[in-house]
Simulated assay, not measured.
Amino acid sequence: MKVRPAASSDCERLIRLFRQLGYVIDVGELRARLLAYDGSDSDLALVGEIGAEVVGTIVLHVVSPLHEIGKWGRISALVVDQSMRRRGIGAELLRAADGFFIGRGCTRVELTSSDLRTDAHRFYMANGYENRSKHFVKHYPNA
């Protein structure tokens, strides 16, 4: 498998992958966000590719919180196509994320996962992650 930065030509495939997690985004908005990541030292979307087919993606961010020394890595999305799971693709994407974060001086990485995704929880724990906190979300109407 090859891991590379996501390109605007990947948008249709990325949309299908994100839908497998329940996220819906319009192709124009996704292209605009990918363009905003170009040249960023703190935001990166990667894809995993087998042959010419995009089979997974991971979205990375570096944050510098005021309340702690150092920088953190944040994975905002990781998805491997349902038909391609349990083949090491997710683990390879996590290794690529580690390289990105360590290269930017991050002292830790965090992510969230729905309470319902128990297979994903086992996967993250098998890859060195700990279940350490609760995640609270507030949605704004009409925003």
Rank of each mutant, 00 (worst) to 15 (best):
D98I: 01
R108N: 11
S8E: 15
C106Q: 03
S113D: 03
D81Y: 09
R122H: 14
K138T: 04
F101T: 00
R104Q: 05
R104K: 15
T107L: 13
I15S: 01
V24H: 04
W72A: 03
E53S: 13
Y23K: 00
M84L: 06
C106G: 01
R95G: 09
I69C: 06
L111M: 05
A126W: 04
L30G: 00
E49G: 06
D41V: 10
R104I: 00
I89V: 15
E110Q: 13
V79F: 09
S133H: 04
R4Q: 05
M84W: 13
I15R: 11
K138H: 03
G99R: 13
S114Q: 04
R87F: 10
G28K: 11
Y124L: 03
G39D: 12
V55I: 11
K134C: 11
I25T: 08
D43T: 04
L21M: 09
A6G: 06
L34W: 14
L93R: 06
R86E: 12
E68Y: 13
G48M: 12
L35N: 13
E12S: 09
V47H: 08
A32I: 09
F100G: 01
H139P: 08
V47Y: 07
K71F: 02
F100S: 00
A143D: 14
G28P: 02
N131C: 11
S42F: 14
N131A: 14
G28H: 12
V24D: 03
G103R: 00
H67M: 08
I58Y: 02
R132E: 15
R117D: 07
R117P: 02
L60C: 10
D115M: 06
L30Q: 04
A77V: 02
D38R: 14
E92H: 13
E29Y: 07
Y129A: 09
R85L: 05
A52Y: 02
E92W: 08
N142E: 12
M125V: 15
M1Q: 08
V80H: 07
A45I: 10
A6E: 08
S64Y: 15
R95S: 15
R122I: 10
L44T: 02
S64Q: 13
A126G: 14
R19Q: 11
M84E: 15
G56D: 04
D26T: 08
F101V: 00
L21H: 03
L35H: 12
S42G: 05
I89M: 05
K2S: 12
K134E: 13
K2W: 06
V79L: 06
V3T: 15
L94I: 12
S8R: 15
V55H: 09
D119E: 15
L111W: 00
G90E: 04
R19C: 01
N142Y: 02
V109E: 05
Q20A: 04
L44V: 03
C11E: 07
H67T: 13
F136M: 12
E53T: 10
S40R: 09
D41L: 13
E49P: 09
R104M: 05
W72F: 08
A97L: 07
G70Y: 07
V27D: 03
R4P: 08
G22E: 08
H135T: 01
P5N: 14
G70V: 03
G51D: 10
G22D: 06
I89F: 13
F136Y: 15
I89E: 01
V80Y: 10
L60N: 02
G51F: 02
I75D: 02
L66Q: 01
L35D: 14
G105T: 04
D26R: 10
V62S: 06
I50S: 12
G70N: 10
V54F: 10
I102C: 02
F18Y: 14
